[in-house]
Design a protein around this nucleic acid. Structure first.
Length: 435
RNA sequence: GUGGGUGUAGCUCAGUCGGUUAGAGCACGAGAUUGUGGUUCUCGGGGUCGGGGGUUCGAUUCCCCUCACUCACCCCA
């Protein structure tokens, strides 16, 4: 009989209980921080009409051209979200917020999907925490948004290491961008043949990308290239200056980096990235910026917006690198029930149930092992207390209750077990005894 | 999608210049200790040597393909 081995789909992975200790920490941190910044959670579905992403992300981006997980159902085409903004904006428009409460500060957290070649820190299913502040062009909100991203990392301990770098730039808006793009084209065109193959391709696809090429030849050729900042309209320059001013005022350190060019089509004005350079090629932990035309582009009214997305994979990698991930085991039950020979196995279930009814978490040993093995399991499970029942206790209507940290043990009437257990659990654990 | 590296037990890895029963440490289970945990000792279970094909008397070892992981590129969180 042939046995097929099923494996996790390429580019995806199982998060096992031990992995989730760290994940929960990030999730809780994100939710708490967003709340402190006045953001509310939103959960759009994972699946949207394919057209939505084509329109928002941009037809000629890699995401749309080759990285979408798409399912066709008759006339319809749906795609698993490759990023979060499009769905949130769609929901914003659909909910009619523009008329009832135009300024919406929303956050989301969940899986995204891109059909890419997997690599460390880049999976086909990945998790992003993102915020979208829709409905205002106020530069204080740009700054607030960037601050939120930075505080997210600082709160995890990444800022303290001094390894964080926040790069910002302004992409201008409409006309600025067109004039700048033409200027770059004019700058590159005469020596296009000297550029790398990749950049020659970019010339047609997305000229601006040539400016952040990593090829040494390109970097050399790019010297003296036009800077977007010089092409900004007065209004946009003023906006950018105000954003920088606000960031300074709340002590968020950033560097203005003219080479920052975000990949997606919808960005305007302020754009930024948070890098953790020690991670090498995959150093960008967060990317975001303004998208002042997207809402209108997706059929809504003309309202500006700003947001960002943070990737969890890279964040976890950075934390790991710095040894900031405690390798905590998942927390076990409060109490582990151990049965000695001579009592029926049902007692394990009864005692556990008694504790559970009282609101404590409890487990019993399921394999009918020797007591020594049961005690070992109790410790391994992470339980703080062991409750032991043997024939003698049974006869007296008692159980033994043992604090596995202090090794202190005492008898207690069965009726008082939950109360006693609760008391012991509330005790400060004795300082770890040196071995 | 392009190029390089790797793939032996749950984990970390040895090994076979092609030769018959593939090893270690850790982990896991049992016993020493017939009612009590992180030490020690003894014993034990567990591997189609990633998968498929080829060369060969014989392949885990050599060749090809494939899958997965990994590093870099494209791109990006």
């Amino acid at each position: 009989m042939e046995r097929k081995i099923y494996r996790v789909v390429r580019g995806m992975r199982d998060l096992l209980p031990k992995d989730l200790v760290a994940w929960r920490r990030l999730e809780a941190h994100a939710a708490d921080l967003a709340r402190r910044f006045g953001y509310q959670e939103i959960r759009p579905p994972l699946l949207e009409e394919t057209e939505l992403f084509r329109r928002s992300v941009g037809e000629v981006t890699d995401i749309v051209e080759k990285e979408m997980f798409t399912v066709e159902r008759g006339e319809h085409s749906f795609t698993l979200r490759p990023e979060g903004t499009a769905g949130v904006v769609r929901a914003y428009v659909e909910a009619g917020f523009a008329k009832t409460a135009p300024l919406q500060k929303l956050w989301y957290l969940g899986p995204m999907f891109r059909y890419e070649r997997p690599q460390k820190g880049r999976e086909r299913q990945f998790t992003q925490f993102g915020v979208e502040c829709i409905g205002s062009l106020d530069p204080r909100l740009d700054a607030e948004c960037i601050a939120l991203a930075v505080r997210f990392f600082e709160g995890l301990g990444l800022g303290a290491a001094g390894g964080l770098e926040v790069r910002i730039n302004s992409m201008g808006d409409g006309d600025d961008r067109d004039r700048f793009r033409e200027a770059v084209r004019a700058f590159v065109a005469p020596k296009l043949a000297q550029y790398s193959e990749d950049s020659q391709r970019r010339f047609e696809r997305n000229v601006l990308r040539i400016l952040d090429s990593k090829d040494p030849r390109d970097i050399e050729l790019n010297r003296g290239a036009p800077q977007l900042i010089d092409f900004l309209s007065d209004e946009n320059r003023e906006h950018f200056d105000k954003v920088k001013g606000c960031l300074g005022a709340i002590d968020v350190k950033v560097v203005v980096d003219p080479t920052v060019v975000r990949g997606l089509d919808y960005y305007t004005r302020t754009i930024f990235e948070v890098h953790y350079p020690a991670l090498g090629a995959r150093s960008a932990l967060c990317g975001g910026g303004r998208y002042d035309h997207l809402v209108e582009q997706l059929g809504g009214p003309s309202v500006p917006a700003v947001g960002f997305a943070i990737g969890f994979s890279g964040t976890l990698l950075a934390l790991q690198e710095l040894g900031l991930l405690a390798d905590d085991e998942p927390t076990g039950p409060d109490v582990h029930v151990v049965l000695a020979d001579g009592v029926t196995e049902l007692e394990g279930l009864l005692l556990a149930d008694q504790l559970r009814q009282a609101g404590l978490s409890a487990a019993f040993d399921a394999e009918g092992r020797r007591m020594k093995a049961q005690m070992k399991n109790a410790v391994r499970s992470g339980a703080r207390l062991a409750v032991i029942l043997g024939p003698e206790e049974l006869e007296r209507g008692e159980v033994q209750i043992k604090d596995l940290l202090s090794a202190e043990q005492s008898a207690v009437p069965r009726a008082q077990l939950p109360e006693r257990a609760r008391f012991l659990l509330a005790q400060v654990p004795p300082t770890q005894v040196a071995p």
